[in-house]
C-alpha cells in the first residue's frame, strides 16, 4: 500500500515533463515515421530511393566524418581546458567555468556568423595574414569542410568540456601525488593513474558531442557553402525545396536509427550508465 502510493508520487512528479515529451516529441517523431512509410505512396519506396541515391550515401558518410572529427577535436581541446581548469585554476575556477558556459548565452546562429566574419575571403584572418605578408591571395578557410569543422568544434566545445570538467573535479589530487610518491614520473602518473579515471568523462563528452554533431544543422549550412551537405541540411533541402516530405522523413528516420546504433555500439564498449549518468 505504502509502496503503491510512493510510486504514484514519483509518477506524478515526472508527469508534466513526460507529457511534454510525449506531446511535442514522441508524437511528432511517430508522425515522421508514418510519413516516411506513407508519402507519397505506402511502402518502403522512400527507403529504396534513399538506398539507391549516391548523394544520400555521400551525405551520410560526410555527416559521420564531420561528427567524428568534431568529436576528436573537441575532446583534445576540451580535455586540455578541463584539465587546466580543474587542476590549476584555483580561485579562478568559477570565472573559468563561466567563460566555458558563456557561449551558451549567444545563439549558435550568431556564433556561426561570427566565424563567417573571421574566416571569410576578406575576413579578419585572411586580412591579417595578408597585411603581415604571410599570404598573397586569401586562403579558402570557409565554404568547405575545414570551415565547418572549425565552427563545429567551437560550438560543441562546451559540451565536451562540461562533462569532463565535472568528472575531473571529482578526482582527488591525492591519486597523482600518490603515484608520484610511489615512484611514477609526472607523465606516467597522468597516463596510468589520472587518465583512466577521466575516461567516463571523456566518454560522456564524446557521446554528447558526437550525437549532437550528427544532427547539427545551422553551422554546416552557414559555413559549408552548400557543398558540406550534412544529413540534417539534406533533410531540410528535401522538405523546403522540393516539398518532398516522404524522402525527408525517411532520411530523418535513418538518422535517428543511425544515432541509436551509435549508442548501441558505444554501449558494447563503455558503460553508458556511468558515462552519461555518473560523472565519477
Amino acid at each position: 500500500m505504502f509502496r503503491n502510493s510512493d510510486k504514484m508520487r514519483y509518477w506524478a512528479l515526472i508527469l508534466p515533463a513526460l507529457a511534454i515529451m510525449v506531446t511535442f516529441y514522441i508524437f511528432p517523431v511517430l508522425g515522421i515515421w508514418e510519413i516516411a512509410f506513407t508519402e507519397p505512396t505506402t511502402g518502403v519506396g522512400n527507403f529504396v530511393q534513399m538506398a539507391e541515391s549516391s548523394a544520400v550515401r555521400t551525405s551520410f558518410i560526410l555527416t559521420f566524418r564531420v561528427a567524428a572529427i568534431t568529436t576528436l577535436g573537441c575532446l583534445i581541446l576540451g580535455y586540455v581546458v578541463a584539465y587546466a581548469i580543474s587542476n590549476f585554476a584555483g580561485k579562478l575556477t568559477p570565472l573559468m567555468l563561466a567563460l566555458v558556459i558563456l557561449p551558451f548565452w549567444v545563439s549558435v546562429l550568431i556564433r556561426s556568423f561570427s566565424w563567417i566574419v573571421l574566416l571569410g575571403r576578406s575576413g579578419l584572418v585572411n586580412d591579417t595574414l595578408r597585411d603581415t605578408g604571410l599570404i598573397d591571395s586569401p586562403l579558402r578557410l570557409m565554404h568547405n569542410e575545414f570551415g565547418v569543422l572549425v565552427a563545429m568544434i567551437h560550438v560543441m566545445l562546451p559540451f565536451a568540456i562540461l562533462p569532463m570538467l565535472t568528472n575531473m573535479r571529482g578526482i582527488s589530487d591525492a591519486y597523482v601525488k600518490a603515484a608520484r610518491g610511489l615512484g611514477a614520473s609526472e607523465w606516467t602518473a597522468f597516463r596510468q593513474v589520472y587518465f583512466p579515471q577521466t575516461v567516463p568523462g571523456v566518454m560522456s563528452g564524446a557521446l554528447l558531442v558526437f550525437v549532437l554533431s550528427l544532427g547539427f544543422y545551422v553551422t554546416p549550412a552557414l559555413l559549408g557553402g552548400g557543398r558540406v551537405l550534412m544529413i540534417s541540411e539534406y533533410i531540410t533541402y528535401q522538405i523546403q525545396e522540393f516539398l518532398n516530405w516522404g524522402l525527408g522523413s525517411a532520411l530523418s528516420v535513418a538518422l535517428l536509427i543511425a544515432t541509436a546504433l551509435v549508442l548501441l555500439i558505444a554501449a558494447r564498449f563503455v558503460n553508458l550508465r556511468s558515462a552519461l549518468l555518473e560523472r565519477k
Binding site: S53, A55, L62, E241, F242, N244
Partner: peptide
C-alpha cells in the same frame, strides 16, 4: 524533371 535533376545536382556538388 525537377525531382530527379535535383537529386543528380546534389550528387554532383558533393559526391
Amino acid at each position: 524533371n525537377q525531382v530527379s535533376a535535383e537529386e543528380m545536382y546534389v550528387d554532383a556538388l558533393i559526391n
